[in-house]
Write a protein that binds this DNA or RNA. Structure first.
Lengths: 191, 191
DNA sequence: GCCCTATGTCAACGGGTGTTGACAAAACTT
DNA sequence: AAGTTTTGTCAACACCCGTTGACATAGGGC
């Protein structure tokens, strides 16, 4: 897994070790979800003892929260002219090269949503970084329901893309998919 | 939780006990997913000892498979008048559906998808009972892309519902959400 | 009534988990 | 170089898990 090397003068460096733990945890959580990952696996990936997780983060739940906190905020995804919104977002979701961080955060959410302990952290993060920004950007009546709908579609499409390796569609079908998605997204934000 | 009473003449009745175990397991798996549920919880819900699970089903994985096998074929979700499709599906996804078998099966799949042990049974059931039927039912040109879009939206909305405990919307907003979702789903299947 | 099988309980096992505190070693301070 | 703080290891803890085998008891066949 990801190992962060202490290139600094110090061989023992709490900051580097902590970052390594965080990176290993992120990678594991993305691929397996909260419940299926053990702290011993994460520590092993980081080349370090388990007990350091408790020392540096407080516990598993806090580690998970910090992984989630490193997710990019959703605002970047929702900027610019509102009339192009559907086109832009659909193209970004279907065609553009994937931005790993966005996808990884969604995967963490998907794979950890079943865990009661992780759910609270997920709910909070999703509200702050995803639903909140969209709702604010949209404005108008029923902004929360409209934002929710867009966020849900984005989430479903993104997860499908990741899981199915570009939707398993040929170029023509994918373009058709993109156009249809653009129209739907645009209609989803209209008041 | 669900307790099946042995109203028959026998107080001890393996068939009834087994059915009670299966019902309790289904309910738990729907709400918490494979990993988060323990056999002791299931047995306790059924008012019976843990060891009977192993005796009657062989083990946890076999119990899970049998719960999944009891899911409806999936085609029922995509039947009836095509003009009502969006309305029907949106209502199913958004409105209270605690007794809806289709949605429960979808919830089991989503909530257990992160568990390696449950994945095999899920993959089989999901393909047979969910993705396959949509495409087949739709037919027409670009059935593949259209089915994909619907499946993605269903997935995103369902995940949101799982995470947020009924979307975190008040009644009015949820109704608005439902209507909007219905319209979008309907437009998603139109050729 | 008795017997024998079906049915359910119980305790224990081996293994994995997150967490904790004592200890060892490295690195900084003086 | 000695002393002190930082950093990492280790062993143990208490808990929960799924599973198993021995035991208890209910209930139908005789």
């Amino acid at each position: 897994m990801t190992v962060i090397h202490a290139v600094a003068s110090r061989k023992r460096n709490a900051t580097v070790t902590r970052a390594g733990l965080l990176a290993a945890a992120t990678e594991r959580f993305v691929r397996e979800g909260y419940d299926s990952v053990s702290l011993r696996e994460i520590a092993s990936d980081a080349g370090v003892d388990v007990s350091l997780v408790s020392r540096y983060f407080g516990g598993k739940e806090e580690l998970f929260s910090e992984v989630l906190a490193a997710c990019p905020s959703g605002t970047e995804m929702f900027e610019g002219d509102i009339h192009d919104f559907g086109e832009r977002l659909a193209t970004k979701l279907v065609v553009d090269t994937k931005e790993d961080k966005d996808l990884n955060c969604l995967l963490i959410i998907l794979r950890s949503a079943s865990s009661p302990k992780a759910r609270e952290a997920i709910r909070k993060s999703g509200e702050e970084r995803f639903f909140g920004p969209i709702e604010k950007w949209l404005g108008g009546p029923n902004a929360n329901a409209r934002a929710r709908l867009i966020a849900d579609i984005v989430m479903g499409v993104t997860i499908d893309r990741v899981i199915s390796d570009d939707f398993g569609l040929d170029d023509a079908a994918r373009e058709h998919f993109r156009v249809r998605l653009a129209r739907i997204l645009q209609s989803a934000i209209e008041i």
